[in-house]
Design a binder for these strands. Structure first.
Lengths: 336, 336
DNA sequence: CTGTTAGCGCATTCAC
DNA sequence: GTGAATGCGCTAACAG
């Protein structure tokens, strides 16, 4: 591996001069500069990032800690996050946790040991995570720790989604949500309840406008199970409040021979590609994943830069996608 | 940040002794060892990975270079890849290229500059990539460079898939593939042609058993476009040979009011979750993405370990998923 | 403007 | 078995 001394020798200049010429920092004679650059190019020199990191006390890398890499809900944000950070000269160290708090803590420590300049973290829950020596921004979910977070405005999004189901004329509506430990579960559920109760829906009412809530894992299997239990007394409309839950619900309705939306209306959450082409199209609330990733990246860059933004939860609005699964009564347009 | 000297002082031992105690390499008195470990724990010491990397000349990190992070085709492999590497003490540095050769080269250089121990690379094409100073394993696609690659056995998989379509009684079959620059396009197309020609299908035949091939981008939009052109003279069966192409084809048939499989039979490639619940279920060839990721990881670990496996293309067999989109004539079971 | 030097934190080699 | 010294490649501070 060719190093700085090699370049300096080839260019016939001193060690420090070569360094300054390459980095562009500090004064260097125009003549010497070109000689160094030329020598570096012809020798194929590239700065050793490990040595530079040790000396500069920063790595120009940031950690990304997510539950898993196969969920569009995380990767869609991660993609643009990576883009923004790369443009700022930072590269991405990725760790997955499988939503396991132990591995989450482990990943955080590993990132610290590697001296990343910052971390973007999708927290598993409200479990007591040790304060990190590096700047942290939370993404998608917030843990309640004293760090900034960037999330979708699920409360209002799901509230509007629920209103849509109500407007379509359904009087018996059930929502499926994930574990209460996640802020996403709580926010979405709160939005659902707000809209339903405001419209006079009553929890577990035997007659009249009835709302129900089933809580399960944020997985397809969880959604399938929840739907199966609901089958004993099926609602008119089902709101599986994550794309994986939608997946699970559709597996169950398919097995049970239930037609969506003819037998059962449905409104979902998230907007993976296939929502558009499934049946008559799945009506859903689409969180602004790309914007969230960009926001998180910018926030983290600010933090790294030494700014101290007030730790707060940034809620970014998403959009409603009105398609066919809510049935005939769906208004052509609801939100702006 | 607490460092080794702090630990040594707290434990009342010398510098080197502390280092040996922590790393477990080299002789250390049982007494001193426990004192050091205790001091390290209570001070919250974690060894500085940047300093260690500089000294040891290895980073215990490997690079992953993929076109993008939102495609299940890459992330499903990446997930288990990451798992295997993590178990071996390596962490993952991720870069995306958008299939752009320039950014691919850039990413490779960046990884080299960061002194990763190895790189797993999904190559964009056969573009002349500079030989890398670090071990490289190719994943999903092979570039023809002299490095080992781990891919799905697309040739045989698509051949069997095509046979399935033929067995179902279709006599006018069209395949949609991606750019010829990718090994995946070529292998899948070869499998398709082999099965069709063997069954007496003729390219561009006006009558009798007819096969057609449309080449386009490996994107949903590309698939939609290809399908639209095919609409002028629709085949009986369509084989979009990537999950994104399937997505695009279904967008077009949906817009055009064409029913799959009643008006048009379809067999796809890949197996994202939604294939199972779309309509009557999408019949498809599912590449062994998880195994591929594991294999690539193991191969890279061997390379890092100094082994020199013959650079070869490892083709791992996938499985056929027989569902509903090939129409009534589909045999209940075809492959083992 | 330029060359020399110190030291980032650690693993390792060498005397003891 | 242990402690001290060396140097990994680089940037920054300093002396010329």
């Amino acid at each position: 591996m060719v190093k700085l001394t090699d370049v300096a020798r080839a260019a016939g200049v001193g060690y420090g001069t070569a360094s300054r010429a390459l980095s562009g920092k500090g004064p260097v004679g125009g003549d010497a500069r070109t000689r160094v650059l030329e020598a570096a190019r012809s020798l194929g020199y590239t700065t050793d990032a490990t040595a530079r990191a040790l000396r500069e006390r920063r790595t120009r890398s940031v950690g990304l800690i997510v539950p898993d890499m196969t969920n569009e809900f995380y990767t869609a944000s991660a993609e643009v996050l990576q883009e923004v950070l790369r443009a700022a000269g930072h590269h991405l160290l990725v760790a997955t946790t499988g939503n396991h708090p132990g591995r989450e803590q482990e990943a955080l420590q590993e990132m610290a040991a590697r001296r990343v300049d910052g971390v973007v973290h999708v927290p598993s829950g409200a479990t007591a995570i040790q304060p990190s020596p590096v700047p942290v921004v939370e993404l998608n979910r917030y843990s309640g720790r004293n760090v900034p977070a960037v999330v979708s405005d699920d409360y209002n999004g799901v509230k509007e989604l629920t209103q849509l189901a109500i407007d379509a004329g359904h009087t018996d509506i059930a929502a499926i949500v994930g574990p209460d430990a996640y802020s996403t579960s709580r926010d979405r559920l709160a939005g659902f309840r707000a809209a339903a109760q405001q419209a006079g829906f009553d929890e577990n009412a035997a007659t009249g406008r009835r709302l129900r809530v089933v809580s399960t894992d944020f997985t397809a299997e969880g959604g399938a199970r929840a739907m199966r239990t609901l089958l004993a007394d099926p609602p008119q409309a089902i709101l599986p409040l994550s794309s994986r839950l939608v997946m699970g619900v559709l597996r169950t309705t398919r097995e049970a021979g239930i037609s969506v939306p003819d037998d059962l209306a449905l409104a979902g959450y998230g907007d993976p590609d296939w929502f558009e082409i499934w049946g008559s199209g799945i009506t859903t609330f689409a969180p602004p994943l790309a914007e969230m990733g960009a926001q998180a990246a910018k926030l983290l860059l600010d933090l790294i830069n030494g700014d101290q933004p007030a730790p707060a939860v940034h809620r970014i609005p998403g959009v409603l996608r009105i398609r066919g699964t809510l049935g005939k009564g769906t208004p052509a347009k609801h939100s702006d």
